[in-house]
């Protein structure tokens, strides 16, 4: 059993999804925590310090490469699995099993993921790209991200798209969080029950936290 064989079987590919999924969940915690500094009530002072560290220190900048690699793997593997799985039933049913046997969002991970991806393109275009290009993609001078947030989130459609992106992420996680742990082999009933509850709590918290950021700027709360 070579490593390649281990990770390219159907179960192996699912392991890749589980590992990268949990990795992205960890990223979300860091990202949400840092961005929550916008609510410190200091007109972005604390947030700017944090953002400056993330952008100008080589440790988070190297970790950023890992983040992109993990995201890339998750997206490519996820989409490939989605399309491969769709091809396994060339003649469909006249009457579908639908929501009787499973939750709609558990069956829509590909769609939800694609919505997240579209949102991410816009999101990177708003903040990551202007900042990094200003830095010459190395450790150069950063832009003022707090002001940039103020600017972008003064536009209603941008705020709406961000909130919708967060909701897609929330549903993706509502299934993904507990599913990832099952993928990694947690089969103990007590843990599965716990992880399902923690998963829902996490999904709701993350969705609200991220969604409130553009809303807060739009309504002038920060």
């Amino acid at each position: 059993m070579t490593w390649k064989q281990v990770f390219t079987s159907s179960v192996g590919k699912k392991l890749v999804m589980g590992f990268t999924g949990i990795f992205l969940i960890l990223f979300l915690i860091v990202h949400a925590g840092l961005n929550a500094c916008i609510w410190a009530g200091d007109n972005g002072e604390m947030f700017t310090k944090g953002a400056h560290f993330m952008g100008s220190n080589w440790v988070p900048r190297i970790l950023e490469l890992g983040l992109f690699a993990g995201l890339f793997l998750h997206v490519i593997q996820g989409l490939m699995l989605e399309f491969a799985n769709r091809r396994k039933r060339s003649v469909g049913y006249a009457v579908s099993y639908g929501n009787e046997g499973s939750k709609w969002y558990s069956r829509s991970m590909g769609l939800l993921g694609t919505l997240i991806l579209l949102f991410l393109v816009l999101h990177l275009y708003h903040f990551w790209l202007p900042n990094r290009s200003n830095q010459g993609f190395l450790l150069g001078e950063e832009i003022n991200l707090f002001e940039k947030m103020k600017l972008e989130f003064s536009v209603l459609w941008v705020v709406i798209v961000y909130v919708l992106g967060c909701i897609s992420l929330g549903y993706h996680l509502a299934h993904g969080f507990q599913s990832a742990f099952r993928t990694l082999g947690i089969h103990n009933k007590r843990y599965n029950t716990l992880l399902t509850s923690v998963g829902y709590a996490f999904s709701i918290t993350i969705t609200l936290l991220f969604a409130m950021m553009p809303v807060s700027f739009y309504l002038g709360w920060v």
């Binding site: 159907s10 590919k13 799985n85 046997g101 599913s179 993928t183």
Partner: peptide
Amino acid sequence: QMDKEGFGSCTNTGACEAT
């Protein structure tokens, strides 16, 4: 063998258990 037979991969939806 399961992969060779052309079954899809699992996404933990739970429809199997329900039926």
